[in-house]
Amino acid sequence: MSAPVLSLRAVAKSYGAARALDGVDVELHRHEVLAVIGDSGAGKSTLVGVMSGNQRPDAGEIAVDDRPVTLASPAVARSHGIASVFQDLALAPNLDVVENLFLGAELTRGRLLDEVSMEKQAWELLGQLAVRVPSVRVPVGALSAAQRQGVAIARSLLGDPKVIVLDEPTASLGIRQTAEFLTLVERLRSRGLGVVVTSHSLVDVHAVADRIMVLRLGRVNGEFDASVATQEELLAAVTGVESPGNGAVRGGGAR
């Protein structure tokens, strides 16, 4: 099997006395969807923050394609091929869809913005992902939650990332929008991307994940093969009631 596209080794992060992450290892391959689940406060957001360059870990190593990297900022992470969609989506509400898609990476002709090319590419990109917006020239603030999310995901795909990190993507979506989102994740996977999805909705991520990693109190409390893990096993690992059962690839206590 090929080397992991993204790997984290013994990553730790504390906020004051609170340990948000404690010796967490993650491996992500191309063509793979890794779901990270856990209660709130389990360290999901911190883990995503570390992967996306939004937070600096106190300890541990991060490697992209086996080369050690330091993810100092989201922009640096993106330059290493790791794109993120934050839970708040990080869109400027006053800018329109095209402006948001290309924000920080505008196309230019000479020294001026090339609006025509950007608008054209925007339609193509949104079309590929089957993201529907009334017009690419409406301010993002006027779009629905699902549309905004589609825009945020589309933006993360500009610049051909290897890894895409999605933080709590289904939190604010209706069922139809969730369906569209999950189908979108499948599409990302078949494009060859490594996808990390965090969620507290087990059902949603279980539908598209290849592997499921359970975080509990900042530690890995089990890692499961999604095709054989049962909801009960996963729930047990989330709540810490029982030691993980048959589906566990790797138990938290085993290391």
């Binding site: 900022s73 006053n94 402006e99 920080g104």
Partner: peptide, 14 residues
């Protein structure tokens, strides 16, 4: 304009 709309979002966008 992006910074004025949402400075944090602009920072995350690079």
């Amino acid at each position: 304009r992006a910074v004025g709309g949402d400075a944090d979002a602009a920072r995350k966008a690079g």
